[in-house]
Simulated scan of single mutants.
Amino acid sequence: MTKRMILNETSWFGRGAINELVPEVMRRGYGKALIVTDAQLVACGVVEKVTSKLDAAGLNYQVFDAVTPNPTIKVVQQGLAAFHQSGANYLIAIGGGSPQDTCKAIGIISANPEFEDVRSLEGMAPTRSPSVPILAIPTTAGTAAEVTVNYVITDEENRRKFVCIDPHDIPLAAFIDADMMDGMPPSLKAATGVDALTHAIEGYITRGAWELTDALHLKAIEIIASSLRDSVAGKAEAVEKMALGQYVAGMGFSNVGLGLVHGMAHPLGAFYNTPHGVANAILLPHVMRYNAEFTGEKYRHIAQAMGLEVTHATLEHAREAAIQSVESLNRDVGIPATLREVGMRKEDIQELAQAAFDDVCTGGNPREAKIEEIAELYLKAL
């Protein structure tokens, strides 16, 4: 069986990596950029760290800052209109997963206008043309959207989030610069960090996993587990390590898929606007226990990557140690313990379970999940 790996054409790492943005733009001969971001990043001066460099080099740009958390079809269409009005010929995404995902949708639809309804991009859409060129600058250490072929859009009208998977959407260049992430509040560092851990764990146990992605995911688990607490505490070196760890996880899961944690988290975002990383973090231990018997020795490897000595432990003990290590990390970084704390309602469980069952990520889960089992997991996490 053949395997596929798709990664950025170019990625820059380390503090000061955004200094390579202007040389990349000039080397590629781009004209005017539309910067896709959100108003908060503009207000707190993060976007200015980039625009000041463009200004100094005399490069033209326009800013679209209407992106919202869990970006909607309407936001994508507004951004698409802004791109066409601007006369830009490339895109710069500045932000976490929401600006990155919005930017991908804008770029794909601009190059493939037959998908302008946005909804038709769900799943593996048969786009023919590569996205308008995207240069991606993440400001959170979690989603890894800058290196993945995935993006997620919210359909407010139908109260659902849908995943788009398209090799044509991957940014041409990414700039993984911890200087752009230092200003994250601790709660955001925690949520995005456990999101990255979820990517690594789900990518490691998903049905499509293979040797190369296994190596990436285990390394990502090691980096994240050893750095997240210090990153949340504000230690600069740990922030830089988290920036790398989340990217390494993205290199893996983008190419093999995820599982039931993400399948269950997406409806929570659509129903209650729950932050994606928080939803993943709360659900992860519950789904890990549900999957445990279908993962062979992999939980032992996860526990070892998280720094536990389980070489001679029974498999049952090693599996439980891995799960408890995740639970401990959640507690230490301040993740809510239950879904009730983030607004989930018991009366919505059946509808949530159906949406999770239908989610494209759920198909990658190592254990085939039934709707009633998913409903029980939501109830346990409530």
Rank of each mutant, 00 (worst) to 15 (best):
R4C: 10
I6G: 01
E9D: 14
S11P: 03
F13S: 02
R15H: 10
R15V: 13
A17L: 09
E20R: 15
E20C: 11
E20P: 03
L21I: 13
L21K: 06
V22G: 10
M26W: 05
Y30W: 15
D38C: 09
V47L: 14
L54F: 10
A56Y: 08
D65V: 07
T72W: 02
K74R: 12
A93M: 07
S98I: 00
Q100N: 14
I106D: 04
S110K: 12
A111Y: 08
E116H: 13
E116T: 14
I134K: 11
A136M: 08
T140Y: 02
T148Q: 06
V149K: 13
N150R: 01
I153A: 01
N158P: 03
F162W: 00
C164W: 02
H168M: 14
M180T: 10
M181Q: 14
M181T: 14
G193M: 04
G203D: 02
G203M: 04
A209N: 11
A215N: 13
A215G: 13
A215C: 13
A220I: 09
A220F: 06
D230W: 06
S231A: 15
E237H: 11
E240L: 04
M242R: 10
Q246F: 03
G250S: 11
G252C: 07
G257K: 02
G263C: 02
G263W: 00
A265V: 02
G269M: 00
F271A: 00
Y272G: 00
N273Q: 12
N273V: 05
T274D: 01
L284S: 12
R289D: 05
Q304G: 07
M306I: 08
A321M: 11
A322M: 06
I323F: 06
V326H: 04
V333D: 03
I335H: 03
I335W: 03
T338H: 14
M344K: 02
Q354F: 11
V360D: 06
V360S: 12
C361I: 02
G364D: 00
E372L: 08
Y378E: 00
L382T: 07
